[in-house]
């Protein structure tokens, strides 16, 4: 039993590494041209958000259908700070994470008393509300026109080429992946799982259910917010249309297709769905339809998602 557990862990890490290597190698194989670098870096950013969502959904058992909202808060915070005050990306990312964490309290606090369908509705509404505010609060966000980021510099070093941002994005993704993979083996990770699996037993084991749920929301949103800051640095431009329902659902689908409560699965899911949405983007609606069909199929036939490639006998939670 012990040896099989170790074996399966190793296999899952192999899949995760495969996903990362493919994503990192893609622009290299294309000879470091700008567009492939951009696509790969964008994958890294989206995968960070997907991992943050899995921390919330897979690990602590709370649903979010509005993660693009946290992503947007981080992106706008960093973009506006850069555009107006020429703030460093590191500071921008911290500010973005902080703003997203603050925003998560708005949904996280009621979430302590809500579950399942209700939480789905509330988080969906949150995502839409953030996008709408971004669109309409023109004095701050320029509305439809978006915010243009100034020169990007990280800790004083100017990131002049897409290659730099690409490198920064993958380092950040690696850090988030390590955090997500280690979380289950920490006290906090166990508290998340305890609250997910049995609130009654969790409380009996001295875990404050409400505080743990809010903590999960705050951590998840902070990561998504930091990813948003990177996104602003990557695209150099932030506009409301990047943060709609469909973006939230894409993040959600990455976790579900990959398999909840699995870092490797989520990375793989992010890679597959990002590839689908890039590949099918030229035909309006095709990528959305494909991803929709994919998650219906996963829910019906393989509730464990892609992680069932290496883990057997687990349902989705």
């Amino acid at each position: 039993m012990v040896s099989s557990a170790v074996l399966s862990f190793a296999r899952s890490e192999r899949f995760a590494l495969l996903a990362l290597v493919l994503a990192i190698a893609f622009p290299i194989a294309c000879g470091f041209r700008t567009y492939p670098l951009f696509i790969a870096a964008q994958f890294a950013v989206f995968a960070m958000v997907a991992l943050s969502l899995d921390v919330l959904m897979g690990r602590s058992g709370q649903i979010s259908l509005g993660h693009a909202g946290f992503f947007a808060l981080g992106a706008y915070a960093a973009a506006i700070l850069s555009a107006r005050f020429d703030v460093d990306l590191l500071a921008g990312a911290i500010a973005g994470a902080a703003l997203a964490a603050l925003g998560s309290l708005i949904v996280g606090l009621p979430a302590t008393r809500l579950s399942g369908h209700y939480l789905g509705i509330v988080t969906l509404g949150f995502g839409v509300a953030v996008a709408q505010i971004a669109l309409k609060w023109t004095a701050l966000t320029n509305g439809d026109e978006g915010v243009h980021v100034r020169t990007i510099h990280l800790a004083g070093i100017v990131l002049s080429s897409p290659l730099h941002v690409y490198a920064v994005a993958f380092v950040a993704l690696a850090a988030v992946a390590v955090f997500a993979a280690r979380l289950p083996r920490t006290r906090l990770g166990r508290a998340f799982a305890a609250v997910r699996d049995s609130e009654i037993a969790a409380a009996a084991m001295g875990i404050s259910v409400a505080r743990t749920k809010v903590t999960a929301f705050v951590i998840s949103a902070a990561i998504a917010g930091a990813a948003g800051a990177l996104y602003a640095a990557l695209t150099g431009f932030v506009a409301p249309e990047d943060f709609g329902i469909s973006q939230s659902l894409l993040f959600f689908a990455m976790v579900v297709v990959g398999g909840t409560a699995s870092t490797a699965g989520t990375l793989l899911g992010a890679l597959v769905l990002d590839a689908v949405s890039q590949g099918a983007a030229t035909v309006g609606g095709l990528s959305v339809a494909l991803i929709g069909a994919a998650i219906v199929a996963v829910a019906l036939f393989r509730p464990a998602g892609l992680k069932s490639l290496w883990r057997r006998g687990e349902g989705s939670r």
Binding site: P184, A202, M205
Partner: peptide, 22 residues
């Protein structure tokens, strides 16, 4: 608990570890 109420997604060991986490 009468029906065990374990943290079903955690290993047996992790379940017991939760008892020490406080």
């Amino acid at each position: 608990f009468q029906k065990a109420e374990l943290f079903v997604g955690l290993s047996a060991l992790d379940n017991v570890l939760v008892g020490l986490d406080h």
